[in-house]
Design a binder for these strands. Structure first.
Length: 220
DNA sequence: GCCCAGGTGTTTC
DNA sequence: GAAACACATGGG
């Protein structure tokens, strides 16, 4: 850590540059949960196609997804990639939700308890669990993804080998525990991460965010 | 054709 | 433990 991280300052700059991101792009907590699995290592545009298929089949509801065959489900979510694996994972997650009395009942659980339970489900890792906690259950949990590590390591705020929980703790210790703030911050990091510098402007000349640029080719 | 995308579990050293 | 691998579609 070469210097003190001004996480709030970076947040303000990203918000000014990109505006509110309106995450999660899902209409119900259940839709958020399904999307969290479907988007694992997958471009969101492909997830949207899968979601659209599920809606069209009337399968984007807890009971419907609980009843559907894994094979049929795999067919519907095919555009999101890894469809056989994700179909099994979704079935597991849905069974968990049903067994625990649904999302409403689960919302009475403590955050740590719920996180442990989610992590116990096959196919739900830390990022997926935290995405569900933050975006479906509105809990103040900072979500870490590959962009977060890449960008903040490049800024000199994280060690090369910082693990998921190290990074999560880094943010949670330096920011107020505020679900709305974590919601927007993670979304803005993803937005920044996706921002690819044009080949015609390899040094992001004039870009007010050039010092935050995630591209390793653009070390300043 | 190649690389990447809002990861995770399993296998192997 | 951590590195290597499997899982798969669609856009740039």
């Amino acid at each position: 850590m070469s210097r003190q991280a001004d996480l709030r300052g970076i947040f303000d700059r990203l918000l000014t540059a990109f505006g509110p991101q309106g995450w999660w792009p899902g209409e119900t907590p259940f839709e958020v949960i399904v999307g969290a699995v479907l988007t694992q290592n997958t471009a969101w545009a492909n997830v949207e196609r899968a979601i659209w298929n599920l809606k069209g089949a009337g399968a984007l509801e807890l009971e419907a997804l609980h009843r559907i065959d894994a094979e049929r489900l795999a067919e519907l979510i095919r555009p999101s990639g890894y469809y056989n694996m994700k179909a099994r994972r979704l079935k597991e997650l849905v069974r968990f939700l049903v067994e625990r009395g649904g999302i409403e009942a689960l919302s009475k659980c403590g955050t740590e308890e719920l996180r442990r339970a989610l992590l116990g489900i096959n196919g739900v890792g830390k990022e997926t669990a935290d995405s569900i906690l933050l975006y479906a259950f509105n809990r103040p949990v900072f979500v870490v993804d590959a962009y977060t590590k890449r960008i903040f390591h490049r800024l000199g705020h994280l060690k090369e080998d910082a693990g998921y929980d190290d990074v999560k703790g880094f943010f949670e210790e330096r920011l107020p525990r505020d679900a709305a703030l974590y919601n927007e911050y993670h979304a803005l990091i993803v937005r920044l991460g996706k921002e690819r510098c044009r080949k015609t402007r390899p040094l992001c000349r004039g870009c007010p965010l050039s010092d935050l640029c995630p591209s390793s080719r653009n070390k300043l």
